[in-house]
C-alpha cells in the first residue's frame, strides 16, 4: 500500500517549447531502461528476495514511480501547446496520429512497452546484478538526454534524476554485499 503525496519528488520546470526533446525523453518513460521498467522490476522482485534486502528494493521501486511522474510531467509540458504541425516537425506525427498529446508507454523509437524488458530470476545475486545494471543504464540514458538539450531547467531535473540513479546503484551494490556477508563473522566498523 502507498500513501500519495500530491507533489513531485523534485520540481519540474521546462523553459523551451521543444516537442522533439519530448520524443527523446519518452525513452525514460516506456523504454527498456526507463522508470516504468525499473519500478515494475523492483516491486516485482521484492517478494522473492531474502528478507534483509527487501526493504531496499521496496523503497527504490517506490521512488522509481516518483521519477516516472517527473518524466511524464516533462513530456507533458514539452508537448502541451504544440500544434499538430509542430508535432509533425518534431517527428511525433505517428504518435499524434494514434494518441494526440496523450502519453503512451513506448520508447523513443515508438516501440510499445513490454514486460520482457526486465526479469525476475529468483536467484538473489542474479536479480540484484540486473538491478545494478539497470541503474547504470538509466544513468547513461540521462547523460545522453542531458547532452541533447540546452534547456537549463530541463537539464536541472535530469541531473537530479541521474544523481538518484547513482545512489540507487550504490544501494544495490550494498545489498549484494549484505548477501555475501558471512553470518557469524564479527562486524568491525
Amino acid at each position: 500500500m502507498w500513501v500519495y503525496e500530491k507533489k513531485l519528488q523534485y520540481p519540474v520546470r521546462v523553459n523551451k517549447c521543444d516537442p522533439r526533446m519530448a520524443k527523446f525523453l519518452i525513452e525514460q518513460y516506456g523504454g527498456a531502461d526507463g522508470e516504468l521498467a525499473a519500478a515494475l522490476r523492483y516491486l516485482n522482485q521484492r517478494y522473492t528476495l531474502p528478507d534483509r534486502v527487501i526493504g531496499i528494493v521496496n523503497d527504490i521501486g517506490t521512488e522509481e514511480l516518483a521519477h516516472l511522474e517527473m518524466i511524464a510531467t516533462m513530456v507533458y509540458k514539452l508537448t502541451k501547446d504544440a500544434t499538430a504541425e509542430q508535432m509533425k516537425e518534431a517527428g511525433l506525427g505517428p504518435h499524434y496520429a494514434d494518441h494526440d498529446k496523450a502519453l503512451y508507454f513506448h520508447n523513443a523509437a515508438g516501440v510499445p512497452f513490454t514486460a520482457t524488458y526486465f526479469n525476475a530470476k529468483g536467484d538473489p545475486i542474479t536479480d540484484l546484478y540486473e538491478d545494478i545494471a539497470a541503474e547504470e543504464k538509466a544513468r547513461a540514458t540521462y547523460q545522453w538526454l542531458i547532452n541533447m538539450t540546452d534547456d537549463p531547467d530541463l537539464k536541472d531535473g535530469l541531473q537530479f534524476l541521474r544523481e538518484r540513479e547513482v545512489v540507487h546503484s550504490q544501494r544495490f551494490r550494498e545489498a549484494v554485499e549484505i548477501l555475501k556477508e558471512e553470518r557469524d563473522a564479527k562486524r568491525l566498523f
Partner: peptide, 11 residues
C-alpha cells in the same frame, strides 16, 4: 539528489 557528498557527481 543525495545526502552524501561522496556520492555527488554531477554530469
Amino acid at each position: 539528489g543525495t545526502l552524501w557528498p561522496a556520492l555527488f557527481a554531477p554530469y
